[in-house]
Amino acid sequence: MEKNQALHAYIKEDLLNRIKSGTYKVGDRIPTELELCKDFNVSRTTVRTALKQLTIEGYLVRKQGNGTFVAEQKVKQTLSHTVKRYSDQIAVQGKKAEISLVSLQVIPATEFLVQVLNVSVNDPIQRIERIRKANGEPTQFEIAYVPWKLAPGITKEHAETSLYETLQRNYHLQIAKTTEHVEIAFPDERVAHLLEYKEGLPCFYIETVAEAADGMVIEYSRSYFRGDKTNFVISRNYLEEEGL
């Protein structure tokens, strides 16, 4: 244990290492609180604190009357350059992807959308709300904004597949660049309900601006990702970036 490391933090780290190394596999029942107390020679309160944190973070799941089990692995999504659709990224992890439309409406451009989408006030903007799921469990809630003049008449069928692929195939709009801002956010009651997530727990929050090669903004979106179901992979090629 590192100097000044709290006991519950040490236990949490040890259990997490066992999960990530495969000592405890998905679906395995971990030792009881009493067994862990004996193993680590600590109080039940200390063990419970460690287990609670791992449960909140999505590594463990408690089943009333049965014990605590290792949860399914979180959905991994790539933030670095990738041409893979959501369904493809999920499929390689052995999970079934699903995109469900929540709402599709045309709204007048607000002053904020005027700035981010380079449109005029009151221009028609398509506002698309979607839920992404993996194995039937919600992982992401997204609100996307696309100018009507660029892609008129986006349909439910379009929205429930890859939106970028639809923009390219049906409207000849090629996404060449995205800029993403990542934060931690706390979802409101509606977002938490749609994500089947407890209100007050943190989410990853990402705002994305998608552009064509000439700099024209094609789409702006806001996305909430369940913190217990999602993690992100960022890969950088420094030799390529340095031109070496």
Score class of each variant (00 low, 15 high):
M1A: 11
K3I: 15
H8Y: 15
H8D: 11
I11W: 01
D14H: 13
L16K: 14
I19K: 03
S21P: 01
K25H: 12
G27Y: 07
D28Q: 10
R29S: 05
I30Y: 05
P31K: 09
E33G: 01
F40K: 07
S43C: 06
R44M: 08
V47G: 02
A50W: 00
A50N: 04
T55G: 13
I56S: 09
E57S: 08
Y59R: 02
V61I: 14
R62K: 15
R62F: 10
G65K: 05
T68C: 02
T68P: 02
T68I: 15
E72K: 12
V75W: 01
Q77N: 04
T78V: 15
S80C: 10
S80A: 13
H81G: 01
V83F: 11
V83T: 13
Y86K: 01
D88G: 09
A91M: 04
V92E: 15
V92C: 02
G94K: 06
E98C: 08
E98D: 14
S100V: 11
I107E: 12
P108F: 09
A109P: 02
E111A: 10
F112V: 12
F112E: 15
L113M: 14
L113F: 13
V114H: 01
V119D: 00
V119M: 03
N122E: 12
P124L: 11
R127F: 05
I128H: 05
E129R: 12
R130Q: 07
K133M: 13
A134S: 13
P138C: 07
F141I: 09
F141W: 12
Y145G: 01
Y145H: 15
V146R: 07
K149S: 13
A151E: 03
T155F: 09
K156Q: 14
E157H: 05
H158N: 14
S162Q: 06
Y164E: 10
Q168V: 03
Q168M: 08
Q168D: 06
N170D: 14
Y171T: 02
I175R: 03
E180P: 00
H181Q: 05
E183M: 09
I184T: 14
A185D: 15
A185L: 03
F186P: 02
A192T: 08
A192W: 11
L194T: 02
L195G: 04
E196W: 07
E199Q: 15
E199N: 09
C203G: 05
Y205G: 00
E207A: 06
E211T: 09
A212E: 13
A212K: 10
D214F: 09
V217K: 14
E219C: 09
Y220N: 01
Y220D: 00
S221H: 02
Y224L: 06
R226P: 00
D228V: 07
N231D: 14
F232K: 05
S235N: 11
R236D: 05
N237F: 06
E240G: 03
L244G: 10
L244I: 13
L244T: 04
